[in-house]
């Protein structure tokens, strides 16, 4: 029993990231509101960021910033040469990913504003119904073509 608890506790970061990721995934596929979909995508991205940063962690490690000055004394240099630094590479990758997340969120919000100006609603059902009403011949044609192929 204690073995199972140890296994769960040793990998608690994966539990947290999977939970967050599934919250975002559910919001993306089940919610009809476009803003809520974007929020779900952001939660999903944040789960990935946490996953990467937790992979970089090393027990007893400190932030990957060298602790001595440029002309530090030898004694000080020797004292800090035993310091363990965490893995710096995931931090850099996630710095890139955060910027891309900001950019995608901004473009998504801009497109949602244009959609709202066009259709007067953010609900997926209303937008799709309005589109079908706007172009009945389009959806009718597509349906007939699909039936003809079958």
């Amino acid at each position: 029993m204690s073995g199972i608890i140890e296994i769960i506790f040793a990998e608690f970061n994966y539990w947290i990231y999977v939970t967050l990721m599934m919250i975002g995934f559910y919001a993306m596929i089940a919610k009809k509101n476009l803003i809520k979909k974007v929020i779900g995508a952001n939660i999903f991205q944040t789960a990935i960021f946490l996953f990467y940063i937790s992979l970089a962690e090393v027990k007893g490690g400190t932030a990957p910033i060298l602790l001595h000055g440029h002309d530090g004394a030898d004694a000080a240099h020797k004292a800090v040469s035993e310091v363990i630094y965490v893995n710096p590479l995931p931090h850099v990758l996630i710095l890139t990913a955060i910027v891309v997340a900001v950019s995608t969120t901004a473009v998504a919000l801009a497109l949602i504003i244009k959609i709202y100006e066009e259709y007067g609603s953010l609900e997926e059902d209303v937008i799709l119904a309005y589109r079908r009403q706007l172009q009945p011949e389009f959806s009718e044609h597509a349906r007939q073509k699909q039936e003809g192929e079958q």
Binding site: A10, E57, V58, G60, G61, P90
Partner: peptide, 15 residues
């Protein structure tokens, strides 16, 4: 995720 290294493992392949 069970096969991934434990949190803070210095022996992890990435480190």
């Amino acid at each position: 995720g069970q096969d991934l290294p434990a949190f803070g493992d210095p022996e992890s392949p990435a480190y």
